[in-house]
Design a protein around this nucleic acid. Sequence first.
DNA 1: AAAACTGTACCGACCAGATGGTACAGTTAT
DNA 2: ATAACTGTACCATCTGGTCGGTACAGTTTT
Lengths: 180, 180
Amino acid sequence: MMKKLQITAQQIMQAALNIAAEKGAGKVTLDAVAKASGLSKGGLLYHFPSKEALISAMVQHLLDDAEKNRCSLAESESSVLVSLLKARRVFTQAVAGNTAMAILAAAAEHPTLLQPIQQHNKKVLAEVLSDPATELETMLLMLASEGLIFQELLSISPFSEAQKTTLEQYMINRAQELTT
Amino acid sequence: MMKKLQITAQQIMQAALNIAAEKGAGKVTLDAVAKASGLSKGGLLYHFPSKEALISAMVQHLLDDAEKNRCSLAESESSVLVSLLKARRVFTQAVAGNTAMAILAAAAEHPTLLQPIQQHNKKVLAEVLSDPATELETMLLMLASEGLIFQELLSISPFSEAQKTTLEQYMINRAQELTT
DNA sequence: AAAACTGTACCGACCAGATGGTACAGTTAT
DNA sequence: ATAACTGTACCATCTGGTCGGTACAGTTTT
């Protein structure tokens, strides 16, 4: 049988993301998300039993996305670090400016929700440090990549588009040199 | 005799910072801040006519602090970049983990409040790029420094203390090499 | 096959507590 | 006295969340 038009979890998360991007992270309330996703509050809370659950799912989703992206790039790249840097570029473009700021801010209310991000970071770090000889240089490039992400996320980057592009290329070059 | 005004403003901001650090950014409410700073809500709103004003002041204060710190270090350092990196170390230690997370999250509700941070970043960038020959390397180190700050701010750093210390030293060394 | 039942997806009214903010009367310092 | 300051009481609004109920597809019982 044909399923009725059901609002999926993904649609709800997308709606929440949109609200965050358009009106700021503080405006991501259950009422607002419900309305934006075409549900009543009751219906929304049927899918996500609490706001915390919603935000947690959003964080997880974002992380999964980033990871998937990175893995698909990793196949065509020799170095883990290079794929990480390239994935970052795609990532920040996808979340364009402030889409994911929501998650940061909302998660800040429940700092525990940021834990998966730390775990993810740890995993990536371990992977990237497979060659201990270039440890410091590698960590430096990872950090710079993080810096770029956060500046973009919060829209506080002092760099021009041109500078960012040049920087990205420079970082990738450096990373490639490490493996040669 | 002694005017209490200035002291009080600072005390209030400190109280707000403490709440953020202890209970999370979302718990920084006017009631909570008033109680923590030992005055009533009326008193609090006398000093800061709105919550936005309070947060704005906190952001400004933090920036001023960082700037003052950096300037005092700049006197004893040859390179602007080196002093920036050293200032960062002091900064993250001072705000210890999540003290300033408050500002990030609270400001996310009013994204405009983050603007001074961007301006500050731009100013620093311009200053640091006084030597255009090493532009890319300089920006890379700046970015890595930012990355370190944000990871610390949100408590999502994957690095061990030892790794962080080593990294810091490595970055400073690199910065010093740039000027020689 | 009709009736009874079950589970999923959803709605809308409602609630207790929190929140930012106001009004205003009282107190203190100069 | 008067300006600077503080405290109490209060309010409109919002927030996350509960709850009873509905529609309806599929399943089981009779």
